[in-house]
Nucleic acid binder design. Structure first.
Length: 331
DNA sequence: AAACAGTGCAACCGCTCTGAC
DNA sequence: TGTCAGAGCGGTTGCACTGTT
């Protein structure tokens, strides 16, 4: 359905608004109120498109517009809402009094988006970016075996581990290369004692299911020699290097396993030290469970600089490995 | 001091949605 | 039901400003 342009573009002014034009628009709207934007320019004595008038009014001349730097509360609200709503700037703006969709959109694109990218966060999905993980160095290690991959499972999301598996296969020249390594680990897995006979105490890690059901390597999921999930879990439980209360708030490894909904959440539970390293703020629990990487740390960060904000944001990212956890222990 | 590059933001463009007729 | 105008939305552009060499 063809549409006529919203206004006759010939003779209409474009570009930045002058103070005189602003004054005319403000005076007209104060007298007649906003609305009927098509006829407004003519009635107000403006050589502008009605659309341009509406944009100028709603984004810059409205009396309730809040100007100036975004506060940390506003910023974290934007990030959280964006993680839920996506690029629905008007919907986000509706939750931020005094801020316009255009302003929020610009702030996102020029500040928040870049900061998330620098921190390795995909600004679209709010998830860690897989392309920034240096998986190749891990996967070319001679220590590569299934148990190590399964330990990585606690650090990476399922997509990352899937990628790892695919990279392993590609690195070996054919998918059977990985299969061979998996078979080598069969002995290791089978030799392990079952430390927790009652596997029903915790849910089967759904992410593991993702791994074994991957189409590539093609024959991975169907090969009879591939260890079953219970065997793999046994391997993890037997070889996980952390024991007792290491790195956790007095919570044992076993307790973590029995309460975690999956192995990744177990790892996140272990990373409590990271929280206290950053702040004493009790609301960090929600940080670690929220889709958005940020939550309430207002008392800490208010008035801080851009770099300080980024520093805090980096520390809040749950995928970032805290110093207290030595990766070498996992390998 | 000048040239260049990078950044931020105001404004525009094209499309979709909504309601009136 | 179809058409149209008005309004709104999200993506993109262009320019001014700032920092760097």
């Amino acid at each position: 359905m063809g549409r006529s342009p919203c206004c006759d573009k010939n003779g209409l002014k474009k570009g930045p608004w002058t103070p005189e034009e602003d004054t005319k628009l403000i005076q007209y709207i104060q007298t007649h109120g906003p609305g009927n934007w098509r006829t407004l320019p003519k009635n107000a004595g403006l050589e502008r498109c009605g659309k341009s008038c509406r944009l100028r009014w709603t984004n810059y001349l409205r009396p309730d517009i809040k100007r100036g730097r975004f506060s940390f509360e506003e910023e974290e609200t934007i990030i959280q809402l964006h993680s839920v709503l996506g690029n629905k700037w008007s919907a986000i703006a509706a939750r931020l009094p005094g801020r316009t969709d255009n302003e929020i959109k610009n702030y996102w694109n020029t500040h928040i988006r870049k900061r998330l990218l620098r921190m390795g966060i995909d600004p679209v999905t709010h998830a860690p970016r897989l392309d920034l993980l240096d998986l190749s160095s891990l996967l070319t290690s001679p220590q590569l075996n299934l148990s190590n991959l399964l330990r990585l499972q606690t650090l990476l999301n399922p997509e990352a581990l899937t990628l790892a598996l695919n990279l392993v296969a590609a690195n070996n020249g054919n998918p059977d290369g990985l299969l061979q390594k998996l078979q080598e680990n069969q002995t290791f897995l089978n030799s392990h004692h079952l430390q927790n006979q009652d596997n029903t105490a915790f849910q089967q890690p759904s992410q593991f299911t993702n791994i074994v059901s991957q189409e590539t390597p093609s024959n991975l999921a169907t090969t009879p020699s591939f260890p079953n999930q219970n065997q793999c879990i046994q391997g993890i439980m037997g070889h996980f290097p952390m024991n007792s209360t290491d790195h956790s708030n007095g919570q044992s490894f076993q307790d973590n396993l029995t309460t975690a909904t999956d192995l990744s959440s177990f790892f996140y539970g272990v990373s409590d030290q990271m929280k206290t390293d950053v702040s004493e703020n009790s609301s960090f629990d929600s940080v670690l469970s929220s889709p958005a990487p940020l939550n309430s740390a207002s008392t800490y960060i208010n008035g801080s600089t851009e770099d300080e904000r980024e520093s805090l944001c980096s520390s809040l990212l749950k995928f970032e490995i805290p110093e207290c956890l030595d990766l070498a222990d996992f390998m």
